[in-house]
């Protein structure tokens, strides 16, 4: 698939559009259908498309696995941290009214932070899952290749012994 110019060019046009749509779904979730869960999956779909068309190796250069690990933890941490912030502000855990003076602005801020945390976690989890599954094929290929080399080596040494 890497060699087909049509697929390559179309993918290059599509990937930024998909990422932009993910951000729209993320931040427009208050007013229309959408939110962190959907946005995370759509953002991950852009990176999975990149990996499918340009190969896992290239995708891992663009988006290393450590970004996923950081994203997974940072999202949960942001969600939990919002709750801790509202506790520090003197209210219950995840009670957003304490975050700002204006109640509606406070709720908006809290929902925005929490949804962003969800989106970050979901996007990183989905990309990490795909990398883990696709990386297993590379792993098996390497194991098979190593086994073949070892077999060839023993064969060669045995041939040397008899000679």
């Amino acid at each position: 698939m890497q060699d087909d110019p049509v697929i390559r060019v179309v993918t290059k046009v599509l990937i930024p559009a998909i990422m932009l749509f993910a951000l729209y779904v993320q931040f427009h979730g208050d007013y229309g259908p959408g939110g962190g869960f959907q946005a995370g999956v759509i953002f991950a779909a852009a990176l999975v498309l990149n990996a499918v068309v340009f190969g896992l190796h290239r995708a891992r250069q663009v988006w290393p696995m450590r970004y996923n690990l950081m994203g997974v933890s940072a999202g949960v941490l942001l969600y939990g941290g919002t709750g801790v912030w509202s506790m520090l502000a003197g209210a219950n855990y995840l009670d957003y009214f304490a975050l700002k003076a204006d109640p509606k602005a406070a709720q908006h801020l809290g929902i925005l932070l929490v949804e962003f945390g969800v989106g970050l976690t979901v996007a990183s989890v989905m990309v990490a899952l795909f990398f883990a599954f696709a990386g297993r094929l590379t792993h098996i290929r390497l194991v098979a290749k190593t086994a073949a080399h070892e077999a060839a080596d023993t064969e060669a040494s045995r041939a040397g012994d008899t000679a």
């Binding site: 939110g35 869960f37 979901v122 899952l129």
Partner: peptide, 10 residues
Amino acid sequence: ILTAIVVGVA
């Protein structure tokens, strides 16, 4: 159900 779908795929 929204959250259950995402948990389901995980």
